[in-house]
């Protein structure tokens, strides 16, 4: 399936609350394929949420296994439908950026360990506990499903000093 263009703020869809998936069908499977392809296409991308490719459904994919921060500790490719965080603990700050908000990065506090429930593409309910970098990535992607950007969570800002070529 094709790689989809990633929407950039101020595209209004990025601030929309996404709807629950009621039925996991061919369309959802196609959407997941698009999300995975789009994630693999983004340089160093470790996750994409459906709203980032213009679909306001509660679906996101995360794969930190190839990232230096996540390769030691991960669940591989996670395709999550209607994910819900049921427990969180710990707090750590990481400087985040987002494909939908280029040229900007900022420090964000997030839980270091989360327990979550979601439907996998077969419709089976999965429960996992993710920690460290993978937990941060999942929280970042799940925020997209609520129309929340990392800009809404920044505790200190730092502009992309080295990515912007000119004003």
């Amino acid at each position: 399936m094709p790689v989809q263009p990633v929407l950039r703020y101020p595209h209004p869809i990025l601030k929309k609350l996404c709807n629950r998936v009621e039925k996991i069908d061919q369309n959802i499977h196609r959407l997941i394929e698009d999300l995975v392809d789009t994630m693999h296409d983004g340089p160093g991308s470790v996750g994409v949420a459906a709203s980032q490719i213009g679909v306001t459904l509660r679906v996101c994919v995360v794969d930190v296994s190839k990232n230096r921060h996540g390769k030691e500790n991960n669940h591989g490719l996670l395709c999550m439908i209607n994910p819900e965080i049921t427990g969180r603990c710990g707090l750590a700050t990481m400087r985040e950026g987002c494909m939908s908000v280029p040229d900007y990065t900022g420090d964000v506090d997030r839980a270091t360990e989360i327990t979550l429930l979601f439907n996998d593409p077969d419709g089976t309910i999965q429960e996992i506990t993710a920690s460290r970098f993978e937990a941060v990535a999942i929280q970042h992607e799940m925020d997209h499903l609520d129309g929340v950007l990392f800009l809404d969570r920044v505790t200190s800002i730092k502009t992309g000093l080295f990515r912007r070529k000119s004003y």
Partner: peptide
């Protein structure tokens, strides 16, 4: 102390 804080792009 020195540590890497290169931003992570999601």
């Amino acid at each position: 102390s020195v540590r890497i804080i290169t931003p992570v792009a999601f």
